[in-house]
Simulated assay, not measured.
Amino acid sequence: MKRTFSALLVGASLLVVAGPPAVAVAPSRAAAVVAPSAAYRLPDLVPGVSRARRETVRPRRIEYVPRSEVAPATRAARCSAATGPYQRQAERYLGRQVDGRQSSGDCRAIRRFQQTHRIAPATGFAGPVTGAMVRVARARKNPNRAGHCPTLTQRTACVDLNRQLMWIQQGGRVILEPMPIRSGAPTMETRTGSYRIYLRRWRHISNLYGTRMPYAQFFDRGEALHGVYEDIFSGAGSHGCVNLTMTDARRAWEVLRKGDTVYVWGRKPGV
């Protein structure tokens, strides 16, 4: 898809791909994993729930688990014996023996982490959502430890494509803690560099796709920070924008202003 300046004027917004697929493949495992049943669906994902309700309820995060572990609504999720694709990362963060193999002790520790971070179903399977939240938790103390994001006097949204994280800092102080993001899909990668927010629209609708972009903050030729109603942990990625959960998009909207810096670096894993 040819991306010219004329096709990406103000308001001609780059949007996310469609909602979560029925089946996702764990990055390093042959077995298919699936999104949980409707028993685990949340206000952010359920049609018919009002926007106010979607934006005030703190949503759970939907993990992708082995097909055999998708529990019906009438049965509680059991502790998983399967090794997830992010097993080692979870073990390292939780202080477990880092051997990349699931044990009953690992499962209990991962399950507690999932419950703390509102990941459902909390089966102890270290899937992609658990892996993302481990990255968020590891970054929380000092997200800019590697010094990739410049220390500026103005507010700066730091977008780390390597870790799929964003935080906001000012003068070297973090003023909005790390949050997970979904950046551009292959061939539609989010552009790297230093930019300024030039347009903010609370209720923006894409001129190109007719799709809602709540809390849109544009920083480069149509690319924006904005919220999405679907699951940001699914799909190949956006059409170039930086996708946030509705809760995080609203928080970023409340902190940032027109003229603030957005600094993007790195490369999305798998792109």
Rank of each mutant, 00 (worst) to 15 (best):
P180A: 05
S183P: 12
A224H: 12
G193Q: 09
H204K: 13
E91I: 03
R135G: 01
T192M: 03
V49K: 07
Q114A: 05
A30S: 14
I205T: 13
V34W: 05
R135S: 04
S80K: 06
R182K: 14
L9F: 10
Y198H: 10
R53W: 00
I232A: 05
L14I: 03
A109H: 06
M1H: 08
D99R: 04
I119K: 01
M133Y: 10
A76T: 14
D248P: 08
Y209H: 15
Q169E: 14
R163W: 14
P72H: 09
R203Y: 01
Y64E: 09
D44P: 03
R92F: 01
T245V: 03
G240C: 10
P85M: 04
R201E: 06
S206N: 06
Y64A: 15
A236G: 13
V271F: 03
A31R: 04
E254F: 07
T190M: 07
N207Q: 15
R112H: 12
R88W: 07
V25S: 05
Y263P: 03
C79E: 05
P180W: 08
Y86I: 01
T247W: 07
L15Y: 10
S234Q: 10
N162G: 12
N162E: 14
P36S: 05
R3I: 11
T245I: 06
Q97T: 15
W202H: 14
R118K: 12
G193R: 09
A77Q: 04
A137M: 05
R250T: 03
P214W: 09
I62E: 10
R191Q: 15
D248R: 10
Y195S: 10
G84K: 03
R111Q: 02
Y263L: 03
R163F: 10
T130K: 00
Y64V: 07
G84T: 08
Q115Y: 03
M213R: 09
L176Q: 15
K258A: 08
G124Y: 00
S68L: 07
P43M: 11
R111G: 00
H226E: 09
T151V: 14
R182C: 13
A31T: 15
H239A: 10
L42Y: 07
A18H: 15
Q115N: 05
I175M: 01
W253H: 07
R118V: 02
A146R: 13
A122G: 11
E223M: 12
S103V: 02
R200E: 02
E223Y: 14
R111W: 00
H204Y: 06
M133T: 04
L244C: 09
R3F: 12
R112C: 05
L244K: 06
G147N: 12
K258G: 06
A24N: 13
P128A: 08
E254T: 11
A30V: 09
A185T: 08
V262E: 02
F219N: 00
R54L: 02
R145Y: 13
R53C: 02
